[in-house]
């Protein structure tokens, strides 16, 4: 007797079809937003890893372009060791930012330079201050953005490079900017990336495309710092389980060999 009879095979197919249908219902942006193009990323797939050179450049883009408005609250400076920065380099990066600490012995709060164990310093002390400085719109924290949108990295990249001229006759409201990929097309964030906006430490030409790719690689790492460990461990675990399943199944067949069933 086969493992799966006709009826049960139908059940399996129906089940997977169901899952696919239900999942695809995590549908895309409402409005006239274009769907982001599918891009190939270094971190994609079972064997995907972080492109560290790109992520280091992405950190530079974040610090020089984005950090003026966007926080990265969940990442600590010491985490940058994952991207290949030395302890000394991290101390230097951190010390460029001030953290409110205290109270001291006089009961007062005071400012001090950040140390590696601190989280990335936010540009604004709270959401209200952020909105006040940005026409009422709150620049979201960037740590999890790659995981927070359907389309993930593809979407963020598309958004950053999607500041195109609006179609003829489109009226762009005051304080908004036209973006081909944003839901509803009118985004509060002005175009952040421009040719040569950043001078890369490693000399890579800073095209908009390059900066977008680099910052997305960095943001992907920021969103999922455990990714490489997860995939590495996963490979071993799944192989182990496949072998274990095979052994147990063989054992079952052997044990049941003389049972009429």
């Amino acid at each position: 007797m086969g493992i799966v009879s006709n009826m049960r095979r139908t059940a399996a197919v129906a089940g997977f079809a169901a899952l696919a249908a239900v999942m695809s219902s995590a549908a895309f942006a409402a409005g006239d937003a274009k769907a982001p193009e599918d891009r190939d990323w270094h971190f994609e797939g079972i064997f995907g890893t972080v492109d560290r050179a790109s992520a280091q450049r992405g950190l530079q883009v974040y610090l020089e372009v984005c950090a003026g408005c966007h926080s990265l609250k969940q990442v600590a400076y010491r985490n940058l060791a994952d991207l290949g920065f030395t302890e000394a380099e991290i101390k230097v990066i951190a010390s460029g930012f001030d953290v409110t600490d205290g109270p001291n012995d006089e009961g007062e709060m005071f400012e001090r330079p950040a140390i590696p164990s601190d989280r990335f310093v936010s540009p604004f002390p709270n959401e209200e201050a952020a909105k006040a400085a940005n026409n009422g719109a709150n620049p979201p924290d960037l740590t999890l953005q790659v995981k927070a949108h359907p389309g993930g990295a593809d979407y963020i990249h598309a958004l950053l490079t999607g500041y195109v001229d609006p179609p003829a006759g489109t009226e762009v409201p005051e304080g908004s900017n036209y973006n081909a990929y944003f839901a509803g097309n009118f985004i509060a964030m002005p175009q952040p990336l421009f040719e040569d906006g950043v001078e890369y430490a490693d000399g890579t030409p800073a095209t908009i495309e390059q900066m977008a790719t680099d910052v997305v690689n960095f943001m992907q790492w920021a969103a999922e710092p455990e990714m490489e460990q997860r995939k590495k461990t996963g490979f071993k675990v799944v192989i182990f389980l496949i072998i274990l399943s095979a052994i147990l199944y063989a054992g079952k067949r052997k044990m049941w060999a003389n049972v009429d069933h």
């Binding site: 182990f240 389980l241 052994i247 063989a250 052997k254």
Partner: peptide
């Protein structure tokens, strides 16, 4: 077979 299955599962 049963021994190796048990051992494998146990180690895992």
């Amino acid at each position: 077979l049963y021994l190796s299955a048990g051992a494998f599962a146990g180690v895992g």
